[in-house]
């Protein structure tokens, strides 16, 4: 059994690196990534699980890091946009498709798309793509460009 009280040091596996961080059990994964590890790609947008700007990948699935405690991530594999190293097909696809304007929601969308491809190596039907991407909000684009980016991601590999 695990019991964490006060401030504790936990081990997190983030972007292929092992990190030890001192956290309060009530600290959110989002805050720990941003404020302690300096991984600020994941953004606070609503802190309520509604906008998806803080989406990261946990064991290959998308997770909104504002609705997860950092202590829950122990023993799991966390991936953020920084861990994509600029080489994930979705990153180039987003550039080529003009799939962002202000860029604030971009990291979250990138991680959802990357997780989509991780779970569905072949392009799924449009309704599956929609279902996954409906977890995120973009206020600048009309979403058409983001759809195009998902297609480019699948076509590029």
């Amino acid at each position: 059994m695990v019991k964490y009280e006060g401030k504790v040091v936990i081990a997190l596996q983030v972007n292929g690196e092992a990190h030890e961080v001192a956290v309060r059990p009530s600290d959110l994964l989002l805050d720990v990534l941003r404020e302690q590890l300096g991984l600020t790609a994941a953004k606070p947008g609503c802190l309520n699980g509604d906008c998806g700007a803080c989406t990261i990948m946990l064991d290959g699935w998308p997770v909104k890091s504002c609705l997860m405690l950092a202590v829950e991530a122990e023993g799991h594999v966390v991936l953020t946009v920084e861990g994509l190293n600029g080489t994930a097909p979705i990153q180039k696809a987003f550039v080529d498709a003009d799939a962002f304007q202000c860029g604030y929601c971009t990291s979250g969308f990138l991680m959802v798309c990357h997780a989509l491809k991780t779970q569905n190596p072949l392009m799924p039907k449009e309704n599956i793509i929609e279902e996954w991407l409906q977890s995120n909000l973009c206020r600048c684009t009309g979403y058409q460009e983001i759809r195009r980016a998902v297609r480019l991601m699948y076509e590029s590999t």
Binding site: T40, A41, K43, G86, Q91, F94, F100
Partner: peptide, 19 residues
């Protein structure tokens, strides 16, 4: 012409005020 900020924004390197 491609956006000047494109690669900053898809790599998480674009820093916003609270970053």
């Amino acid at each position: 012409v491609r956006r000047k900020d494109a690669w900053d924004k898809v790599t998480g390197k674009a820093l916003y005020t609270d970053d």
